[in-house]
């Protein structure tokens, strides 16, 4: 479903700050595969997601989605097949527009824009149904501006918007890191439900080691722009957080230094 071949990315090329952010990454995800990504600060996790999404141009390599070679596609064009949720809850929604207007933009993804009415009756019914899945009471507040929602509510809404038109790939970039523990739990379990329901091919960067092992079917660990561990099946089932940290130490030769890392 997703094939990444020889992907490299250098920041500040030719300056004293030159940094090899991604070093020859090879990764392929099967249909419906849910992969969690962990690693220390500056390991290249977010850069990898941003390269796939088209936010950054890549230096070498190839990115395929389905049978499409997206390597040279602009970000907005890739977005028609990719759903994204960001770490910052402010990044995924338009704060000065209402909940229903935000959903309408998400629902129009990949369709011609045009001068048709932004929202019709059938849309409202669909939005109401989808919002009630979140169990946050947002279905009764559809005319309210998104700016009045809490970070967690906005993040749940962003998740809904990212999957409104079923994407071929879902990219989640530490999307619960900025939330309080209760809301983080809620959003991550919603994520699990949605991915399972639609059988979505998903890459989830997380700072929560436990969640990394609990959700999905495969876990990769990154360090200095490379994938240093890739576990699945039996090996992953028997993996514990303690073992994971130990493995990291032996494979990278350093201590895990993600300052936001949650071990429990």
């Amino acid at each position: 479903m997703v094939i990444i071949e020889g992907l490299s990315k250098v920041f500040d090329h030719g300056t004293t700050n030159e940094k090899l952010a991604l070093d020859n990454i090879n990764l392929s995800l099967g249909t419906g595969e849910f992969v969690t990504v962990i690693g220390g600060n500056g390991a290249g996790k977010s850069t990898l997601l941003n390269c796939i999404a088209g936010v950054f141009e890549i230096d070498t390599g190839r990115i395929m989605l389905g049978n499409k070679d997206m390597t040279y596609w602009p970000e907005y064009k890739r977005s028609r097949h990719i759903g994204r949720v960001f770490q910052d809850p402010l990044q995924g929604t338009a704060f000065d527009m209402t909940i229903e207007e935000n959903l309408a933009i998400a629902y129009a993804k990949g369709k011609p824009q045009g001068l048709r009415r932004g929202i019709n009756k059938a849309d409202l019914q669909k939005f109401r149904e989808r919002l009630s899945l979140l169990d946050l009471g947002l279905e009764d507040r559809m005319k309210q501006k998104v700016g009045t929602l809490s970070g967690g509510q906005r993040q749940a809404l962003t998740l809904l918007m990212a999957t409104m038109v079923e994407p071929q790939l879902l990219l989640l970039d530490e999307h619960t890191a900025a939330l309080d523990p209760g809301m983080a739990k809620k959003v991550i379990s919603l994520t699990g439900e949605m991915v399972e329901q639609y059988h979505l091919c998903t890459l989830m960067v997380t700072h929560n080691m436990k969640a990394a092992l609990e959700y999905g079917s495969r876990t990769i660990m990154m360090h200095e722009g490379r994938i240093i561990m890739d576990i699945t099946g039996r090996e992953r089932e028997t993996m514990t957080v303690e073992l994971l940290i130990k493995q990291f130490g032996s494979r990278s030769g350093t201590e895990l230094d993600n300052d936001r890392l949650l071990l429990s």
Binding site: T93, A94, D96, E101
Partner: peptide, 19 residues
């Protein structure tokens, strides 16, 4: 809608497939 959202949050508009 897309036009208004561009002023609010251009990143979000691109992430939803609009140039």
């Amino acid at each position: 809608f897309s036009l208004r959202a561009t002023g609010d949050n251009a990143q979000m508009v691109r992430a939803l497939g609009v140039n």
